[in-house]
Amino acid sequence: MRGVTVMTRALLPPVWRALPRRALMAAAAVGLLLAAVPRMRQGPPDPYLGLYALRAAALVFALGLAFLLDDPARHITSTVPARRPVRVALRVALVAPGAVLCWTTALFLVPQDSRPPAGALTLEAAATAVLALAAATLAIRRTRTTEPGAAISTWLLATGTTAILLLPHDWTLFVTPQDPRWQPTHDHWALLLTVATVVGARACAEPLRAGLRLRPFRTAPGKGAL
């Protein structure tokens, strides 16, 4: 355990330097700007504007997190003693406080009269963020790409459009608080969060390297095994 702790501390500085700061900071800035739109609007409170502003902010935050595992030096760092789950966990741990702070700020930027139920919207934001991270983790595991962020963010946008247009009426993920499907819809969001978490955790495991196969030991002809 002590060796793992020492190794983790040694990894923190290089992992921190390797974070895609530009993508993360840009996503945070745009997301907070979108969340502030209802506050900048003149006139009576508009709950629908607050709902859509927070959903847009959650999507932008998730698009930023899609770049979290980008690592141009991936094929070099894969040889370090720390396994991929440790390296991924470190990246997530380093950005998690900032992500929580950004979302909390986004919630308070929306005026209280226009703010939808915070718990339900937080569930939506968490599921979207974990889905982006799980997709990036799968891309790292299944391909040799070093920077999957752009492809994953495009996929996430396409998935959101599909969810709006093609999901059946009973499985729609985007409803208003006044809709009787509000609670069942957030049960679906909870299921999506659970599935994305499990898939992302399993995808963190590194596959066996190509060419490594266990072969049965064979003795020379006419000699017995030792």
Rank of each mutant, 00 (worst) to 15 (best):
Ala89Trp: 06
Ala23Phe: 06
Val100Met: 15
Pro117Arg: 09
Gly50Tyr: 01
Gly98Arg: 11
Pro38Ala: 12
Leu65Phe: 07
Ser78Ile: 11
Gly31Asp: 04
Val88Gly: 05
Val30Lys: 06
Val60Glu: 03
Leu34Phe: 11
Ala106Gln: 08
Tyr52Lys: 08
Thr105Leu: 14
Arg21Met: 08
Val95Ala: 03
Arg87Trp: 05
Ala118Trp: 10
Val37Met: 14
Ala93Cys: 11
Ala106Ser: 14
Leu19Glu: 02
Leu51Ala: 09
Ala28Ser: 13
Ala82Val: 08
Pro72Cys: 09
Phe61Pro: 05
Pro20Leu: 02
Val37Ala: 15
Leu109Thr: 05
Ala23Lys: 00
Leu65Gly: 02
Val92Glu: 10
Leu32Ala: 14
Pro97Trp: 09
Phe108Thr: 08
Thr122Arg: 07
Ala27Phe: 07
Arg115Phe: 07
Pro111Trp: 03
Leu32His: 02
Leu63Gln: 09
Leu109Pro: 04
Leu90Ala: 08
Phe61Met: 12
Ala93Arg: 06
Tyr52Pro: 02
Leu68Asn: 02
Arg91Thr: 00
Val80His: 13
Ala58Leu: 04
Ala96Lys: 07
Pro47Lys: 11
Leu123Lys: 06
Leu90His: 02
Ala89Phe: 09
Phe108Asp: 13
Pro47Val: 05
Pro85Glu: 02
Phe108Trp: 13
Ala118Gln: 11
Phe61Tyr: 13
Pro111Phe: 06
Ala118Tyr: 04
Arg22Val: 15
Gly43Ala: 11
Pro44Ala: 04
Ala99Glu: 08
